[in-house]
């Protein structure tokens, strides 16, 4: 039985890339997609998937961060994996606090994405090694 992955992504190129990347895995499948946060909420409410991949920068009134907060409030157990073109710790911290279970930089190699999906599905928190180090640096950086 394949895990059902829902993708929220406003760029056509990326939606196609996710389809190619995920659907070739034996244990994963793209279940549905949405372009905006509002569309995602509506679709997920009627038929929830096993995991949601969310692009942080979304068009329209609902930002990726707002969508994460809303989904987390509605379904605290639904795994949320955030994908972003910004690799700032500032962002990573924000989305983890908002209720996401993982943060992947789009810059990471494509197989990292698949790995991250599997880990979050298993209930782990996912951060790339790079991001984990940055977060550590930020917390321990001396002031002078």
């Amino acid at each position: 039985m394949k895990s059902k992955i829902f993708v929220v992504e406003d760029h056509k190129e990326m939606r196609q890339a996710y389809a190619l990347l995920i659907n070739r895995e034996p244990d994963l499948e793209i279940y549905d997609m949405a372009v905006t946060g509002e569309e995602a909420l509506e679709k997920i409410e009627s038929d929830p998937p096993d995991l949601v991949v969310i692009d942080l920068s979304l068009p329209g009134g609902m930002s990726g961060l707002k969508l994460i907060k809303q989904l987390h409030e509605d379904r605290p157990n639904l795994p949320l994996l955030v994908v972003s073109g910004h690799d700032d710790v500032y962002y990573a911290e924000g989305v983890l606090q908002a209720g996401a279970h993982g943060f992947v930089d789009k810059k990471e190699a494509p197989y990292v994405m698949v790995d991250a999906i599997r880990r979050v599905l298993q209930g782990e928190q996912y951060l790339s090694e790079r991001m984990r180090q940055k977060l550590e640096n930020r917390k321990t950086r001396p002031l002078n």
Binding site: E13, M14, A17, L21, S57
Partner: peptide, 21 residues
């Protein structure tokens, strides 16, 4: 740059990855 060009490049990279596989 971020919304258009980079997304195209990310998409391209995923396809290259799949192509390699």
């Amino acid at each position: 740059l971020h919304d258009d060009l980079q997304q195209i490049l990310y998409g391209l990279r995923v396809r290259l990855h799949v192509l390699g596989l």
